[in-house]
Design a protein around this nucleic acid. Structure first.
Length: 509
RNA sequence: GGCGCGCUCGUAUAUCGGCUAGUACUCAAGAUUUUCAUUCUUGCAAGAUGAGUUCGACUCUCAUGCGCGCUACCA
């Protein structure tokens, strides 16, 4: 395994193309880059790779930025963050790429090709396993098979062309991957990749990527495994430019797989699997389609981050709940696993529960206030906090809070049948009425004082505690659920408690 | 098809040649709780297969199988 170079300041980048919402696999890649940068006191760059003008989706860039803000992943430089290596949007770097394409052309490491997409398609249909490479390039329409005059004439006449990278066959190309170790590929299996398209005067990913990483002094390329097959090409490109000395080190992350079945988790999976694959809700500007997001589904960003961090990496011990700072400290590329990781959504739910538990009542209450309001409940922050403290351990999502404590704010309008069947027995109206009278007669209503007195009273009457108390519970809550009953009465207060109990007796007898 | 990467309980993973193979999620049972939930305890459950190296292999090598990725004028 290669050593991590320490001579240069660590600089890593996350470079999405704005073709739609950022999907969860991209989030993890960005997270690992972030952790790595922070740990080494380096920089994290945000670069937009919009070299495919056809796939540009308006709003995507803004979405990605917002998503990272929500997730708590911060960039040091790049689009919208500034920096000394800009512009950071590839579509704004045309002149730069042109210059480097010409360099390759002049050095004979690349050539101009006029074969149209249709011609290439025909070729592929005609010849099985056709590949534009050393074995075929001399039969194609390019600057290697044409005179300079013909090439110039074709260009002057407005013919579109591409620039292809000339790959010498039969060379063992070595990629030293920080996660996978040495990967060797024979250059003969590589094709003469298109580096530049005259049509939009833009490079393809491969060229832009290498030029930008070099110019932006990127030291480590941490990206998804889907890039591993093109890593040898990238190495060759660095060599062709003579940039081997500062070539970044590569780390190819295992893929995020669908929870069931096969294949990597893709953007298209959307809500099909029963959980979001995007951090934020996404409204497709073309189709109008809405894909749900973790934020809107009430996931806490900390839970999403923590869960994602552990999908493909672990600190080497049994610690699972970690703050971002702890992860920064513990992160290690060499502890990243090589095999793809299934996206286990159940575990994410558990993480969310853990994070709700660990947050203060005050924090959760702040999120809960708007929900209360939306249900027409007007209350104080203190009351909301108290309610949260009573029920937060029984929810996985803050969105479930209301269902678990609405009775604290609104008297029940109906009574759960199963609960009635079990606890509202024949004698219930009488005993409950007696209990109400007893409670009313007490000078002190506070639970801690009232509870022992009530217990004493029940005993003196010879009643069964469970029956009496649960009958009362049903009148207050509307069902056999909820926290300790005197916690509820404390919250409701004497007047409301008696009102609810007596109303229920009326309705239910 | 070609090339590459991967393969430990259902899932995520620990183990960097000594294993009675650990942990977490899920699931099941029990305890606790006057209700529900929480919590706690216990349990179920794994090294793809076959060779080789070795005193010893889940760990190293090779083969087979399976899975995934890439194979565009997409990233």
């Amino acid at each position: 395994m290669a050593e991590i170079s320490e001579s240069r300041r660590v600089r890593v980048r996350f470079a999405p193309s704005p073709t739609g919402p950022l999907h969860i696999g991209g989030v993890r890649t960005a997270l690992y880059n972030y952790l790595f940068a922070r740990q080494h006191g380096g920089d994290l760059i945000f670069r937009i790779e919009d070299t495919d003008s056809n796939r540009f989706v308006p709003g995507a860039e803004d979405y990605i930025l917002k998503a990272f803000r929500w997730l708590g992943i911060r960039f040091d430089e790049g689009v919208s963050f500034g920096g000394n290596y800009g512009p950071y949007r590839q579509s704004e770097r045309r002149d730069i790429y042109r210059k480097y394409v010409d360099l390759l052309l002049e050095a004979g490491r690349a050539y101009i090709a006029f074969d149209t997409p249709a011609e290439l398609e025909a070729k592929r249909a005609e010849i099985p396993n056709f590949q534009y490479d050393a074995s075929t390039r001399m039969q194609m329409r390019n600057s290697l098979t044409m005179s300079k005059a013909d090439v110039d004439a074709l260009i002057a006449a407005g013919n579109q062309y591409v620039v292809r990278f000339l790959i010498e066959p039969d060379e063992e190309v070595r990629v030293n991957d920080l996660i996978r170790g040495l990967v060797t590929v024979n250059s003969s299996v590589l094709d003469d990749k298109v580096l530049f398209k005259s049509a939009d005067q833009l490079p393809t990913y491969h060229l832009a990527n290498i030029v930008d990483d070099h110019l932006m002094e990127v030291t480590h390329v941490i990206r998804g495994e889907e890039w591993l097959p093109s890593a040898p090409l990238h190495v060759l490109l660095y060599k062709a430019f003579g940039w081997e000395d500062t070539m970044p080190q590569f780390a190819h992350l295992p893929l995020l797989l669908k929870p069931e079945g096969n294949g990597k988790l893709s953007k298209r999976d959307g809500d099909r699997l029963g959980f979001p694959v995007f951090p934020l809700e996404w409204h497709d500007p073309k189709t109008g389609e809405i894909s749900s997001g973790y934020r809107e589904k009430d996931y806490l960003p900390e839970a999403v981050i923590n869960f994602l961090a552990l999908l493909g990496w672990n600190p080497g011990n049994d610690q699972e709940i970690m703050t971002m700072d702890e992860m920064v400290e513990l992160f290690n590329l060499e502890k990243c696993s090589k095999a793809g990781a299934r996206f286990n959504y159940q575990k994410l739910v558990w993480f969310n529960h853990e994070y709700i538990m660990s947050k203060s009542d005050s924090e959760i209450a702040a999120m809960f206030m708007p929900v209360l309001e939306s249900h027409g409940v007007r209350t104080t922050r203190e009351r909301a906090e108290k309610a949260v403290s009573l029920v937060k351990n029984r929810v996985n999502f803050t969105g479930e809070l209301w269902d678990n404590c609405s009775y604290l704010f609104q008297a029940p309008t109906s009574y759960d049948e199963k609960s009635l069947k079990k606890w509202w027995k024949e004698e219930a109206p009488v005993t409950t009425a007696q209990l109400c009278d007893f409670i009313e007669s007490q000078p002190e209503f506070k639970g801690e004082i009232l509870e022992p007195l009530v217990m004493e009273w029940i005993a003196s009457k010879g009643y069964a505690t469970g029956k009496v108390m649960n009958a009362l519970r049903v009148t207050l809550v509307g069902a056999a659920m909820g926290p300790q009953i005197f916690e509820i009465t404390d919250f409701l207060g004497r007047e409301e408690t008696l009102r609810r109990a007596r109303k229920a007796i009326q309705i239910l007898s």
